[in-house]
């Protein structure tokens, strides 16, 4: 009984520390968005205001950046899905020469620090006429999503029981019908998780976007650095909250599937 109590106390302590560790920094920054000023070492700001929100919303450049981010992220997800999902199906369902090498290769190119590639990338994008175009930025973003969009759905397609498909086929369904009525719905949670991860990856991309998009297309992450150092801390806080809203909505949407192991399944090499 005493041991059980100790475990409970330790567990509660661990939980409390974890809450502070994870949520503390977010709250500490978030509160600033409503603060007039803050004097060390007070635990609460000197006063409350919505002034900073008005300022951010009134700033034209910032709202353009917000709009661009909200455009490029879904665009990236769609393009990435069109390019990668057939491949994911192939990886999940077919066995062909070099399959595993291809899977690992997709990941390996991601591990090379992108900063070393700017000059070559710039030359190539100019040569192909992709500089300062929407397509150019989408290519940069899609590159960062390929791992998610192939690996996770591949595992999801691979896990669809063949017996269900065969049963449907035996009942006279066409291959397309089997795919849309049986295979796709069963693989959908995995695809959904891949889409969420791709959205977040696109939403976070700053370095490459700046290279290709400047000066025409600026997104929220490319503006974040100037914001953090350039504006009052409170405005950076407002911007942080705005930048987190889409992510939090996605969290609510896909939480069950992500926690359900779809993401984890996708990263096992089979």
């Amino acid at each position: 009984m005493a041991r059980r109590l100790t475990t409970n106390v330790l567990l509660t302590l661990f939980l409390a520390l974890l809450v502070v560790f994870i949520l503390g920094p977010l709250l500490w920054l978030g509160i600033r968005a409503f603060a007039t000023s803050w004097t060390y070492p007070n635990l609460l700001p000197d006063g409350w205001t919505l002034e900073w929100w008005r300022k951010v919303i009134a700033d034209n450049q910032l709202s353009t950046a917000v709009q661009n981010s909200l455009t490029f992220a879904p665009l990236t997800v769609i393009v990435s899905a069109v390019i990668c999902l057939p491949a994911a199906y192939a990886f999940g369902r077919h066995d062909f020469a070099g399959r595993k090498i291809m899977l690992v290769g997709i990941f390996a190119t991601n591990a090379f620090p992108k900063m070393g590639l700017f000059v070559t990338m710039a030359s190539m994008f100019y040569a192909l006429g992709l500089m300062q175009t929407v397509l150019g930025i989408v290519i940069v973003h899609v590159m960062g999503t390929v791992v998610f969009m192939t690996w996770i759905p591949a595992a999801a397609f691979g896990a669809v029981p063949r017996s269900l498909e065969e049963a449907a086929r035996d009942a006279g369904a066409s291959p397309a019908r089997v795919f849309f009525r049986v295979t796709l719905p069963l693989a959908l949670p995995g695809i959904l998780v891949a889409m969420v991860m791709s959205f977040l990856a696109s939403f976070d991309e700053a370095q490459g976007t700046y290279l290709v998009g400047y000066p025409d297309y600026l997104t929220m992450p490319t503006q974040m650095y100037s914001l953090v150092l350039n504006y009052p801390l409170q405005m950076a806080a407002v911007f942080s909250i705005l930048l987190s809203i889409p992510s939090v909505l996605l969290l609510a949407l896909a939480h069950r599937h992500i926690m359900g192991g779809q993401l984890a399944e996708g990263f096992q090499l089979r």
Binding site: V119, M121, Y126, M131, P215
Partner: peptide, 29 residues
Amino acid sequence: TVELDLHGEHDSQNLAKMAAAVKGNSDSG
């Protein structure tokens, strides 16, 4: 039109871009 890159945070991108644009005779923006 005026754009600010605060503290030259993106100097490496901008220099890379300009160098590539001049060499390839494209518009660097």
